[in-house]
Design a protein around this nucleic acid. Structure first.
Lengths: 226, 226
DNA sequence: GATGATTTGTACGTATGTATA
DNA sequence: ATATACATACGTACAAATCAT
């Protein structure tokens, strides 16, 4: 039948969805820092909506782990303790390991080809020392791994964990030489996957993330009890 | 200082919290079946509250994955497709494997002792063929594994996944001989953990869950595309 | 396919709990 | 310690979207 799209419009979605995206953005980009208090009224007037959708958005963000809420108190941007940060990075390493392992076993020919092409192309970014570009590419690269595992639930868990971690690793590629090192680690992962070596792929990915975690720790916000 | 408790009351919590628990219960126990539609108004009058807390509860339940919501449509109890169910079970197996592996490495002496004692005591339940009791114990057993890993984020991921899976494995111990088999599998896991054999513990736990998944598949609701 | 009945999405008001002077 | 200001929790109202006939 090929029925015409009901709306060719850009689908802005409900107010709540917009608020979730908007506030999450503020948090992830650091405009709102971990620990910062947010009150519903201010957010409501800031975005020119009523408090109702703001409340619901905050609840979702809380479920996502980006904000903490307690009854009758103001919401605060989640500030994870050193211990919690470690546990999240460890979980991330485990999840990435799983994804790489499964990717080695399950990626389609097309996916393998795409992964390899992206990876090879990215070496130009490294040579140019283009931090911002590499950060963007890096997200793409890891997303490929998550999808390659062909498991929607694991994809969800890893995406969720990654989002939650993002406010705490903004500066990860600022470290001296981290770019080239990251590429070499990616190379190890890609090679293992293309070889179909699940164990090696998993191990390399696990270690890759563990190293990122150490790099991020360098930039961890102080004043938080471990 | 030992200040007197402000309220010795049972802390009912906010209305929304109560609603989340109440509705989640209806779903997990099967009073509300997967696919069933829920409208805010009915739930509100059923629990004698206004629609506002119901809406927020539904949003949380949606974040938990227990209900599906689309803008301007009624919420429905999540009905996972066969494929999604498989991916959740696979994720569960991976997560349990991680927990068992880490438990073998990290459990304290007290935790190991407790695990062993519980496990040994549970053999009585098996001999009595007390399905209900074993189901309750089983939850305890697995919870021990999750805690033993000493990683709060992984604990959260696995708890979340387990909750999401629960509506779909209600009948898991009804299968002939599943009880004794489960115990033997637990025994393998416990032995490996006490031995400190992380790899064996992880492998046993992974397989234990995979087997449960097959058992549950037997009871999977029909009419859902894979 | 159009129309009336439901149901959702958002604004707003009030009561209650929390922080602050 | 008390009072005042403020933020949240929940109820109600109404417009817009969806569903049922």
């Amino acid at each position: 039948m090929n029925k015409p799209e009901k709306k060719a419009v850009i689908r802005a979605g409900t107010t709540v969805e917009q608020m979730v995206r908007a506030i999450a953005d503020l948090i992830i980009t650091g405009s709102l820092e971990p620990g910062e208090k947010m009150d519903e009224g201010s957010l409501a007037s800031r975005f020119e909506v009523s408090r109702t959708p703001v409340r619901e958005a905050l609840r979702e963000l809380c479920a996502m782990g980006l904000v903490d809420r307690q009854p009758n108190k103001r919401a605060v941007v989640t500030n994870v303790s050193g211990g919690a940060l470690n546990s999240m990075f460890e979980a991330m390493a485990e999840l990435e390991g799983i994804c790489a392992r499964l990717s080695a076993e399950r990626m389609t020919v097309a996916e393998r080809k795409h992964l390899e092409e992206m990876h090879q192309a990215s070496s130009r970014i490294v040579r140019a020392s283009a931090d911002e570009d590499y950060a963007a590419y890096n997200i793409e690269f890891h997303t490929q791994l998550y999808r390659g595992a062909h498991n929607d639930h694991i994809l969800e868990l890893v995406t969720q964990t990654r989002a939650r971690l993002s406010p705490f690793r903004r500066a990860q590629f600022r470290l001296e030489g981290r770019l080239a090192k990251s590429w070499r680690e990616h190379d190890e992962i890609v090679t293992a996957i293309l070889r179909g070596d699940a164990l090696a792929a998993g191990k390399s990915a696990y270690e890759h993330v563990s190293i990122v975690s150490e790099a991020s720790a360098t930039f961890a916000r102080p004043g938080v009890p471990a």
